[in-house]
């Protein structure tokens, strides 16, 4: 499947290729496995060097599992994750720890929970350096640089503090510093601003973007908020019920959503214009499908306003609209 592989067009090389990735969580009863939660069910996309890809979808659609799979934190059922030409699903755990974990950074959603409460900021930032045996003499300097990079200046004021002494925004900056301290190529930002105060969100996203430019990072930005995805990312990948439903350039997707689900997501972006306040917007009814036993056809069938007979029985393929645009919907092909 050639989905999303657009390296020939941009001229940039693919940093990460995710191919037909499946992450199924087994449901155990007594001694046997009675079924699987298909949290990620056949996902393919690519991330090029220096690119920001937003993965957008509602709660429970598998975004976080996808992020964990890409970071190497959950066992993969099938498929490949190819990073710099190396299939990490075939690597032994030790190599993942020693090589891959240096190349990929993770920024989590909850800045309070993401910090070991018993360590000082210096120790927290020093941990990745210690684990990857980055020289003692460089250690202090790296920590200070990292703190300066994320705008916690002067760093001396922060290094001896404990996480509970900092605010959520400051902690998220520390988390970003920690994700970047090993100079990774790819950063997974798993809803990095959704737990922060609204006033801080743009600030933190701008900071991530600034650092992306400075260090030439590729970023996978996971969010349920299309508005920030539009502001922040080059490309958007829309995820629904464990599958990707639409891939395209951020601008194109926001301008004209093709998939009914994307359309619904765009419809719920808050509109700042007070004249539109009385307009009742179209929202999807119903619930996302059960991921243990997903419906045979398109997974959006119960909620889709354009549902056709074909949708109920045959699962739509990823349909290529143009070189950059893919959509998984029968409306755009036979």
């Amino acid at each position: 499947m050639e989905v999303g592989s657009t390296s020939s067009i941009s001229g940039m090389s693919d940093l990460l290729v995710v191919n037909e990735l499946k992450v199924w969580y087994p449901i155990r009863k007594l001694f046997s496995i009675v079924g699987y939660v298909k949290a990620v069910d056949g996902v393919s996309f690519t991330v090029r060097e220096g690119e920001v890809v937003a993965i957008v979808g509602e709660s429970g659609c598998g975004k976080t599992t996808l992020a964990k799979a890409v970071t190497g934190l959950v066992p993969i059922t099938s498929g490949n994750i190819i990073f710099e030409g190396v299939d990490i699903t075939r690597l032994p755990g030790r190599t993942i720890r020693e090589w891959y974990s240096r190349k990929v950074g993770l920024i989590q959603q909850d800045p309070y929970g993401a910090m070991p409460p018993f360590m000082t900021i210096r120790a927290i930032l020093g941990e990745p350096l210690k684990i990857h045996r980055i020289g003692r003499e460089a250690y202090g300097k790296e920590v200070y640089t990292a703190l300066t990079d994320v705008g916690l200046t002067p760093p001396e004021d922060y290094v001896n503090k404990y996480p509970h002494m900092l605010s959520g925004g400051q902690l998220q900056r520390v988390a970003i510093a920690r994700a970047l301290i090993l100079r990774p190529k790819l950063v997974l930002a798993d809803e990095p601003v959704s737990m922060l105060d609204a006033s801080l969100r743009v600030e933190i996203l701008s900071l991530i973007n600034e650092l992306r430019v400075k260090y030439g990072l590729a970023i996978i930005y996971i969010t349920h908020d299309l508005a920030t995805a539009k502001y922040f990312s080059d490309r958007i990948v829309v995820m629904y019920a464990g599958q990707l439903v639409e891939i395209g350039n951020a601008k194109d997707i926001i301008k004209k959503a093709m998939h009914p689900y994307t359309e619904a997501l765009i419809n719920v972006i808050p509109d700042p214009d007070p004249r539109n306040r009385l307009i009742i917007r179209k929202t999807l009814t119903g619930e996302p499908p059960n991921l243990v036993r997903p419906p045979p056809g398109c997974r959006l069938v119960p909620r889709c306003p354009y549902v056709m007979e074909k949708c109920r029985t045959v699962e739509p393929p990823m349909i290529k609209v143009n070189e950059l645009r893919f959509v998984k919907c029968w409306l755009y092909g036979s």
Binding site: T71, L73, L106, E127
Partner: peptide
């Protein structure tokens, strides 16, 4: 299951660590 453990695994902390 705390996020900081997940973070530690993400930056390569070994099991014993």
């Amino acid at each position: 299951e705390m996020p900081y453990i997940e973070a530690a695994r993400a930056y390569g902390a070994s099991n014993s660590r």
